[in-house]
Amino acid sequence: MKNFGKYILFLVSLLERREKLKTYINLTINESIKIGYDSLFIVSIVSIFMGAVTTIQTAFNLVGPLIPNYVISLVVRDMTLLELSPTIIAIVFAGKVGSNIAGELGTMRITEQIDALEVMGINSSSYLVLPKIIAALLMFPILVIISATLAIFGGYTAGVLTDVITGQEYIYGLRYEFNPFNIPFAMVKSYVFAFIVASISSFQGYYTSGGALEVGKSSTNAVTNSCIAILVADYVLAQILL
């Protein structure tokens, strides 16, 4: 509870005593490249397999003359959009980007680089953390869109290759009774998860004290706490919005 209060104060401090706008724009672009581009590979792999596995498993569970085949791709579509792409990718994101952020800030803390910024009269938390949060908010929804697309594509490939569903059925299922609200829902989730991962990881890293051992601990805590927060937020959002 005390930590939660400290976390809120930390978020408030991001908005105080800011530097020139140009500085932030440059930093945000750099961070976006780091956060977005560098996660692309792992996100793609995870997504393609996620779609493939969902297709095969749904097909396996749904065998029966009464259920048409296109239900498979319908299930894949809804599961990816509603749950798998935003949530699983958020957890991957926490593991890749969150641990990186916490490690970087933690190292800067213990090697006095953060103190060096403060002595120069720079608001170190806003200088270091704000661009990371904005970059995460910009890049993560894009990653989720890419992920959903690749997952559906992965499902198609796996389904057709293993003969559980034909290409036509798959596409028919994708279009069948599509609820357009699922897309804004997935986007809201993405924004919330991106904020959670970037802010919690920054918080953990920024308040590291001690040595290299503690930097490692901060990284681990960043991932663990982000994952828990993601799952709680996932549940809360589902309750509120569905």
């Binding site: 190292t107 800067m108 090697t111 680089q113 103190d115 060096a116 002595v119 120069m120 009269g121």
Partner: peptide, 19 residues
Amino acid sequence: TTQIRREIGMLFQGSALFD
């Protein structure tokens, strides 16, 4: 305070260069 900070230079024990 901000003005004074801008007039301060500090060398840290571990140099604290931005790596």
